[in-house]
Structures are given as C-alpha cells and as structure tokens.
Amino acid sequence: MDFLRPASWEEALAAKAEHPTAVPIAGGTDVMVEINFDHRRPEYLLDLTRVGDLYEWETGEDSVRLGASVPYTRIMENLRTELPGLALASHTVASPQIRNRGGVGGNLGTASPAGDAHPALLAAGAEVEAESVRGSRRIPIDAFYTGVKRNALAPDELIRAVHIDKADGPQQFSKVGTRNAMVIAVCAFGLALHPGTRTVRTGIGSAAPTPIRATAAEEFLNAALDEERLWDSGRSITPSVARQFAQLCSAACNPVDDVRGTARYRRHAVGVMARRTLMWTWESYRGNARTMEGAA
C-alpha cells in the first residue's frame, strides 16, 4: 500500500491520473472501516486532507458550491437555511465524531444506497462537479448513481464539489433505523418543494440498489397540486392525495431483506415517511409552520 499526499487539487488530479486504482480518503469514515476490518487493501490511498478548498463552500446567488470534504457538522451548522434538506440529513449521520470528519464527497464516492446525503441531494436536484486531468464536468445527481456502490465517475476522476440550488421552498429529510442515534438507514426519504418551478422532488435511500427518486409519485403530486391549484391557493393537501403519493413512493422502492430490515417494512416505512414529510413541508409552505403533533 502506498500513501499519496497531494498538497493541492492539481497534484491530487495528477496522482489519480497516474494511479487510477488509488482510493481517495478524506474523512476516512468508510475507507478506514474497510481497512481496519481487512475488507480492502487498496494499492494506493490518496489522502485529500491537504487539499484545502475541498473543505470550503461558497454561497452564490442561486446555489451553493459545497466542497466535497466539508464535514457534515459544518453543513448542519452553517447551511440550514440554504440547504435545509441536506442539513437535516447531515444531522442524522452517525455520531458527532463521524459528522466532524465525513462529508458529502465520501457519500457520493462510496455510493452506498444507505448514504444519508443521497435522498437530500436527489430531492434538491444537485450536480456533482467531477474533475480529472482531462477536464471538469458536472454530473446531474439523477445520472450519478449507476449501480450498487457504483457511480458515474471515470477511474481518473475525483469529486471536487457538489452544486446545490438554494432552497426555494421547504425541504424535509427522514430516516428510519432501529436506534434513536448512531443510525445506519434502514431506509430514508427526502422531499423538497420547489415553488419556483412548481415541482416536488423526492429521494429514497436504502430501498433499492441505488438511491432513487420516486418519479411516478412526483409526477402524480405535481399534477394533483397543479390541478387543484394548491400552489396558489395554499390550501391543505387532501388525505387521499397524500395517501396516493405515499403509495407511489412505496411502489418506487425495490428493496431487499437484510439484517437491517425486511423489504416489506422498507416499502411501508418509505410510505409513512413520504406522507409525513409531505405534510410537514406543505404545511410549512402554507406559512403555517405550527408543529404537527397528532396531524397524522
């Protein structure tokens, strides 16, 4: 094993070009577990710790450019207004110690369906800024996840940043685990209302081979909101619409039985989370941000 320590982004790209099998390591919260448990012995570890701009973010007019290594702690503390869905998701990541190290770049690089950031990124409609010595490109999040723990990166590419539109409406994130802390998702759900485009986007984690959107559910809801002119009227969503949306979200899942939960439960739980997060976001959109106890 060789340990590569690029001092700059350019050096990192050069190293990755020279050693395409090099495994990037930043927070280490995935890679080191695999090394400690002897699941992985990469030829090269590419340490990105010294690449400072990966730890920075810029808030622009319409969007945030989030460095790949910005720790979840920073996201939940500093970007709650701009990126509420991702901030909520960040708060559910493992423990304070892990949130201090891990960042979105790691989630994307690993591309595990259980990664907490994915549903929020899908719902927000993010773009991944990937770069190699050959050049830079932006990969829409919808095209990023290509298979179980596989992504659209070329072997010589590294993730530099994620571009996420600043929230133009309420966003929510919800995750099911069997503990009340230190939870790896049994399944997770992200929802973002986009009043600007009058659309709703979703993201589902741990309920299919890859993180997915519930596109049929989105289409149904977009149409229902449109049809009943709810974006304008600000009236409540009817229980039957919410129920149908939840069912379609469940139906979008393609889960497995594993030690963390059954496929049936995952479908069921995604439906419950879809219904609840829809009610929370919609009530918030209606300017009625009262707490929702007992609302379901």
Binding site: L88, H91, T92, Q172, F173, S174, K175, V176, G177, R179, N180, A181, V183, V272, M273, R276, W280, T291, M292, E293, G294, A295, A296
Partner: peptide
C-alpha cells in the same frame, strides 16, 4: 418538537404523529 425525546430521535421520523 424536540426530536431527541421522540421515537426515531434525530432521524426526524415523527413530530408526534
């Protein structure tokens, strides 16, 4: 709601529902 006191905790699964 203080999520830390609810089932699901910080995972934000219920606000009391």
């Amino acid at each position: 709601a203080d999520l830390r006191q609810l089932p699901g905790g910080l995972s934000n699964t219920t606000h009391g529902e």
